[in-house]
């Protein structure tokens, strides 16, 4: 079940060995699949997304409409393919803003310490004290929903968590003697942050980025499901479920497949980050 592959062999045979199990590989494959779909969606979608192609509504799966038709008789497959651009794109943008901001602030707080650290931590913890979906509801109620607002809101909701995570890791690394050595050498804060601390928290931070990406996808879908996320005529996967919720009692594929699309994306990200390729150091080698 476990395959071991060797990369970049060095003379003498002491190069690093990587282990990447099949669960992680499936996860990675699915992620790459959705990334591909999001990039090339307009080219591969069989129908224009707005076109009412079927006379029937909530039509079944057929050779003509692989995933059935929706409440207006539009092709569900095309709408899911194009919807991936919103779900993946908005979530990616939000997670990068949240993690970049959170990690930099977290490292600075850990290295500086003192009053800066205390105040920032208290403030961001307080923001963590607002349930995420509620925060989204209130902001959308106040300023309306648009894609930049969604990205910033989602980023604002998950920044405190990314900060807290990165700060905790950085505080641990900061307490290590090698950072003390660098400090005693006379190094300045930017060097400490980017050369001594960052390389040592990178792995966990990337895994955290994945976890947070999943949360953001779920929250965005939830907002869209409530009609507060991506606005018509555009639709992400959550909005597709909302549009077609009437078809639920009919068991229509138009409700089920957008759900499955979300699940395949979030589950594959989780599978990948729980089974990242591991560098193996065989101590007795």
């Amino acid at each position: 079940m476990i395959s071991v592959l060797r990369t970049s062999p060095r003379p003498g045979g002491t190069g690093p060995t990587w282990r990447f199990n099949w669960v992680g590989r499936i996860g990675l494959a699915m992620i790459l699949f959705w990334a591909f779909v999001a990039i090339f969606a307009p080219m591969i979608a069989p129908y224009p997304i707005g076109e009412i192609a079927d006379w029937d509504y909530f039509g079944p799966m057929s050779g003509q409409f692989w995933l059935g038709s929706d409440y207006l008789g539009r092709d569900v497959l095309s709408r899911i393919l194009v919807g991936s651009r919103y779900t993946v794109g908005i979530s990616l943008a939000a997670v990068f803003v949240a993690c970049a901001g959170g990690v930099i602030l977290g490292m600075v707080a850990a290295v500086m310490g003192g009053i800066f650290d205390t105040l920032l931590s208290r403030l961001l913890d307080a923001f963590n004290g607002i349930p995420s979906l509620l925060f989204g509801l209130v902001v959308v109620a106040a300023v309306g929903s648009s894609i930049p607002v969604l990205v910033l809101t989602l980023a604002a909701i998950y920044l405190p968590g990314a900060y807290r995570f990165a700060r905790a890791l950085s505080v641990n690394v900061n307490a290590m003697d090698f950072v003390t050595v660098a400090r005693a050498r006379g190094e300045r804060t930017p060097y400490l942050i980017f050369r001594e601390i960052f390389p040592n928290i990178l792995g966990p931070v990337l895994a955290d980025l994945g976890v947070r990406f999943v949360f953001i996808v779920l929250l965005l879908s939830g907002l869209s499901f409530l009609g507060l996320g991506v606005q018509p005529p555009n639709a992400d996967w959550g909005a597709l479920v909302r549009e077609n919720i009437e078809g639920l009692s009919l068991g229509a594929p138009a409700v089920i497949f957008p759900c499955i699309a979300i699940a395949t994306l979030t589950i594959s990200v989780n599978m990948f980050i729980d089974n990242l390729p591991k560098k193996i150091r065989d101590r007795s080698e």
Binding site: M176, D177, F178, V181, R185, E196
Partner: peptide
Amino acid sequence: QLRRCQMVFQLADTALNPAQ
């Protein structure tokens, strides 16, 4: 002054940056 007085720590494991 910093250069002329150096310190070596007890735990060699934590005194070397594992990423460098």
